[in-house]
Amino acid sequence: MALAKRIIPCLDVDKGRVVKGVNFIDIRDAGNPVEVAKRYNEQGADEITFLDITASNEDRDTTVHMVEEIASEVFIPLTVGGGIRRCEDIRRMLNAGADKVGINTAAVFNPDFVREAAERFGRQCIVVAIDCKRVSADGEPGRWEIFTHGGRKPTGIDAIEWAIKMNDYGAGEILLTSMDRDGTKNGFDLDVTRAISNAIPIPVIASGGVGNLQHLADGVTEGHADAVLAASIFHFGEYSIPEAKAFMAAQGIEMRL
């Protein structure tokens, strides 16, 4: 009897459609989010994450309605990230049916927001998203820095120290994305995943770079991640969730089959 490692398909949503960027830039359409979420639910996904990459507020209403629609039909945990800047944003998403919210840029500019949100809503629903890039040269000990604005702006903040701080401030979970790897299909940055997972007591979700099923397994066995997140390998039908689970279970990873 043991806790299962989780597989989390991620839906990047823009103006009510699922899209997937390559290195956070190119966009490709992957369908209606409600249909996609239902499909993953039926396939046995352990959770579903939505990243609202919409810029404007009126389009954000579309996201709220989408979450409402999904939450009345999909009975597994739902996380919504993107544009979460104030407690009202969290309240709105939770009322729409989200179970957790992802806080990213707002945490970087105002870490106290994480503390306030955790106190008000409970740390179980606060996922702090960390977007980082490796800044150390080859051969040097690994160093990673937090980047904002879709990976364009460096902050000078060390990713591991930041993860420790976010745990202290009340994060319930860390969603760790390697911006170097995102969209590349070269696999997770296992070094930073392992370093952060080993440094904090809360669960870490590995994200960015999955191109095949071995990458998912490596995230757990080598990266010590508690959950693995992927988008395009599932959206475009290369692999199904049951295939991914069976593959990981065959490598001795505890899965919910």
Partner: peptide, 22 residues
Amino acid sequence: DPLLDEKGEKLKVPHMGWNQVK
């Protein structure tokens, strides 16, 4: 803190995810 499993390995807290119920 720390919470350890049978093999002495550290477990994450919160207990988050899918576990079996006897």
